[in-house]
Design a protein around this nucleic acid. Structure first.
Lengths: 205, 205, 205, 205
DNA sequence: TATGAATGAGATTTCATTCAT
DNA sequence: CATGAATGAAATCTCATTCAT
């Protein structure tokens, strides 16, 4: 579309470094622009404002991520949980895809998940958690229906969604190598699945 | 000591509100002082600087918290894990104390755990996690020694410490009522203990 | 280069007045900027900071001055002092050039020499003295070699360099008119030369 | 008079250090007072204000100094300059006394002569120079009367007074040891006397 | 397409000084 | 005799943003 993407991309690249290092609020447009060999005005022409620049930095990764999450949730809902039994390694496929995505956009995901405070995306992890929570609620209710005397523990459900998201953020911040990351996340996922099955329901009062 | 603490306390009170609302970095001394009916100079007389004011706001809660954590860790280390079996509700006592502390200093703990970015306490959660990780490592090694063919999975250990801390932060941010909080944290703790016993070790390679 | 230097020059002009009147430390950026009809931000855009503004004010004069000093020192070193005899008016040429320079940048030189305390140039007179001291040391040693039983009195050498620099600062602060200055400095220079020849050496102990 | 001189003296002592280190303007009353174990209010009670404290620090040395200068000037005026011939070491007595005074109040004199910018004494060196200039003017005129075709060169007279004062300031700042100072000042004084006799007069136009 | 100049509002901090007690 | 508390004015500097060109 636009013929001269050079400045745009240079700016995005430099902004990525700055956001990663300082976070959204403390990042300085001046720094970013002078690093890119441009002036602050360019940001306003190309991206409207600081938030626009931030969005441009993360939008690619964010788009892919959102899509993957939606696919995963759709599958989850269609699964027949009534006959569910725990099989270790069951979630490997989704995990593999997610890890792949996270690590192929390492910087962007770090920014999005850890450095976005003050930007329009500062609540992204919370939003993901809400998505998961909502999605898993259906599964959990089906599960409860199959277990007499049990009902969904809404707080546990939310907490489990929370730590599921957290598991990937933790992975990203503690393991830079993608292959080792894939190994490390496995038992974590097993733990999450097992905990889910065991603790997402509580006794009917 | 000083009889007239009015200004000091007024300042702390207003600072608490401002920090809670905006976080350390974005909190404005001007706002705080004008809310308190004082000038910014007063802060520098009474608290030295912005960090000093922040410290004054959280120090009470922080002190009690630190003490409780240390007591807990000491007990944990002395426990005999070789014969350990899971008993639901086992950790109720510690949890009760911790919840009590968190909720009797609700605002301060929120500031400390969620709004301290940029202050001298910005890494407090990470430090707590490190403390737990180090403390639990001993228990985990004893546990591994009692289980032939097993060894400690360091990453899982860290992750379990991480979600333990997270569990309380999550509780604080999602449940304002102390009694309900006490109920909600119970199954979470059970989950943590059970997961610990089941996933902290991995097969010897 | 930049066509519109209006603000830059206005700022430099106003800064010159303020520095001259109050010295570097007590000069107020606010005053300077409001006099110039600009905001303080403009200083930071154009000059980076207060020191940058100060530098911009004095750099022209300083550059010329430095060059003249270096030329003078080079000549001094190459002079054959062994056969040196005092001829009144000998140094007139250098003095004429120096006075010319000082008075064609009167304000800047005053700022540089008398009002720079606290800035990056606060020790300029001392540095000039050191330069002279080092340069004259060679001449003095040659001189001593030609006078049996004599050696350089290091303290006198330094003191003579000191009052040489002082002579010009004194001139600048006590005589605003350039022509009169040229007349007045002459006997001072004669005095300096004569004193140098007579007192820079002391008896070998 | 005042019974409790303790605070007064402690304050003076600490102020001396601070003024010496930072100069009058940059010295901080807070620092001084906290060093003295007192509060800023005490300064205002005991010394009225910052200038008063400064005065208290230097008044002793200043008084002695003033007296010595006046005695010296009186003697100078009464001397019969018409038959004056240069005798090296002539001024040793005055120099000895002056050096003695300067070095027995080393810190105070340094403050007074080098660190008083911004205080009520910031022009002390200039005032001393004026005193000398005025005093020496009479001698110089008598001298001129005895030399047909000569008259006083007012600029040289002032400059010679200037470097005389400077000689002692330079000594103080470049030689901390009193005995070495006494040795070093001797040839400087000889130089000053000789230059005075040779350059204070100019040809009648 | 982007620059260069400038704004304006804000930030934290420092200081001499005051004054009731 | 001195304190402790507080003021008020000033300081330098930083920043996202704007806009004519």
């Amino acid at each position: 579309m636009s013929i001269n993407n050079e400045s745009r991309e240079k700016l995005i690249e430099c902004a990525k470094k700055e956001f990663l290092e300082k976070g959204f609020v403390k990042a300085s447009l001046r720094n970013i622009c002078s690093q890119a060999g441009l002036t602050t005005g360019a940001v306003y022409f190309l991206f409207n404002d600081k938030n626009g620049l931030f969005e441009a930095v993360v939008s690619g990764a964010l788009g892919e991520f959102t899509q993957l999450m939606q696919t995963h949730l759709a599958e989850e809902i269609n699964a027949d949980i009534s006959t569910y039994t725990f099989v270790p390694g069951e979630h490997d496929e989704f995990a593999r895809q997610l890890v792949s995505l996270l690590y192929s956009h390492y910087d962007e995901m770090m920014i999005l998940l850890e450095k976005s405070q003050g930007s329009q995306f500062e609540n992204l992890p919370d939003k993901i958690i809400e998505m998961l929570d909502a999605g898993y609620l259906r599964s959990a209710q089906k599960y409860a229906d199959s277990q007499p005397g049990k009902r969904v523990n809404r707080y546990m459900l939310h907490w489990l969604s929370h730590i599921q998201v957290d598991a990937f953020i933790h992975l990203l911040t503690h393991e830079k190598d993608r292959n080792r990351a894939e190994e490390k996340i496995k038992p974590v996922l097993d733990m999450l699945v097992k905990s889910w099955l065991e603790f997402v329901l509580e006794d009917d009062k």
